[in-house]
Simulated scan of single mutants.
Amino acid sequence: MTMIISPNFGVKLLVPTASSKLSHNSPLVNYALNGLERCWLPEHRRWSHIFHLDGRPSPNESVPNSDVFYTLNVLLGMSRVAGIPSGLDLPEIFSRNASLLTRLPVRKYAFGMALWSAAELGLETPERVKRELTAILADESRWKSFRAQDIGMLLTGVVAQARAGENEWWRYAGPLFRFLKERFHSESGLFFDAPFGFRRRFSSFATQTYLSIACYQYGEFAGDASALVMADTCVRNLIALQGPQGEWPWFFDAMSGRVLDFYEVYSVHQYGMAPALLEWAERFGQRGSRDALVKGFNWVLGQNQLDRAMLVPELSLTLRSQVRKGELTTKAPRVLRAVKNAWLGKGERLIDGTDVEVRLECRSYELGWILWSFGQRTDLPELTNNCAFGGA
C-alpha cells in the first residue's frame, strides 16, 4: 500500500492493498475514515463540530460540547470497523472526551451515547460520568424535560451496557421504556418529540430514528414484543412517507402521521441514520426495508432533485443537506410552514428543484454513522464498493 505520513492521525490511505489493515474495510468505510482525518483536531484529540466546504482557509469549526458528542458518535462507528487508522488510540480518545461530559453544557443524550459507545468498544465509562448519569436516571421527575433524542439515546445506552454485562444499568431500562411508551408514542405510529407541551407533536426524522432504534434494542434484549411492534410500526410508516427519489422527510406531525416539511433533506439520514434503523428492521423481517435503504442511499450518489452527488471526493467528505433557497441561515420560514400545515391538516410535498440549494458543510458525526451502518456490512457491494468511493 502507498501511504503518506500525516500530522493528524499518523497514516493517510492512498491506495489500499491486501497488506494494509485498512484493506479489510470497504471503500465506503475508508472514504469515511479519510474524511474524518480532515475533521480531526489534534490539539484537542477529538473531531470537529463542522468542516466548512465554502473555501475558507480554516475550515474546521470547533464547538466543544458538540465536538465531544460528535466524537463519541464517531467512536461508536469505529467499534464496527475492522481496520482502524494508525495513530488513533480509541480508549484514550474515549476517556478524554467522555470525561468532559460533566464539565460542558451537554444534552442528556450525550451521556447515552457515552454508554453506547463504551459498551460497543468494551471500555469503562468514567466514574464521574457514571455518578452524574445515575443521579439523572434515579430521579424520574427530571425526565419531564427529556426530548426524544435524550430518552432514545439513554435507553439505547442502558441496554447496550446491560448486553455487555454491566447489569447495574438494567434497572433503569424498564422505567425508561415505560416513560417512552406512555409519553412519546403517538397513535399515528410515529413518535412525539417531547413528553408534554405544544411542541411535542412537531417531530423530526431524528426523533423517529433514535426512538425506534431504542425500541428495537430494548424489545430484543428484554423480550418485550410491544417495543418491537412500536419500532416496526414506525419504520413501516416512514417507508410509506419516503420521497419519490428516496428522500427521508425532515419534519412530521406525529399526531396525524403526516409530513409537514421534507426540507432540509440531510445526507446523514440517507447514508447513515436510516440504514442504522433499517438494519434492525431487516433483522425483524420488515418488508421493504432493504429497498428503502438502497433507494435512500442512492439519493446521496446523485439520484436526487439536483442530479448531484452529495460527495466531495477530493476530501472524502459529504455535503450536509439540500435545503430550500433562502433558508440556509434561518429556521423561521420552516417553523411557520410547519405550524400552518399542522393547523390546516395539510401534508407537504417536495418543491421544484430550482428552489433548492446545498448546504456546504460536513459534520464528523455524519461520517461516524457511515462507519456504524456499513462497517460490518458485506451484503450491499453496490453501495459499499461503489466507484464513487474508489471501489470497483
Results as ranks from 00 to 15, higher is better:
22 L>T: 10
372 W>P: 00
31 Y>N: 07
80 R>H: 15
94 F>R: 05
232 D>W: 00
32 A>R: 05
162 A>I: 04
142 R>W: 00
255 M>L: 14
109 Y>N: 14
174 G>F: 07
133 L>F: 01
282 E>M: 08
148 A>F: 03
226 S>T: 12
201 R>L: 00
207 T>S: 10
210 Y>S: 11
367 L>T: 02
170 W>T: 09
239 I>A: 01
88 L>N: 06
54 D>W: 04
181 K>Q: 15
100 L>T: 12
116 W>T: 11
40 W>N: 05
284 F>Y: 15
258 R>H: 03
113 M>D: 06
176 L>K: 10
254 A>F: 03
115 L>H: 02
342 A>P: 08
392 A>W: 11
353 G>D: 09
158 V>F: 03
317 L>E: 07
339 V>Y: 10
321 S>G: 14
43 E>W: 04
253 D>G: 00
109 Y>M: 10
122 G>V: 08
205 F>G: 08
291 D>L: 11
320 R>Y: 11
379 D>A: 09
238 L>G: 08
128 R>K: 13
234 C>F: 01
225 A>N: 09
67 D>E: 12
289 S>N: 03
276 A>C: 08
376 Q>Y: 02
16 P>V: 05
171 R>W: 04
25 N>T: 09
269 H>N: 13
140 E>N: 09
105 P>G: 10
136 I>V: 14
332 A>M: 13
233 T>I: 02
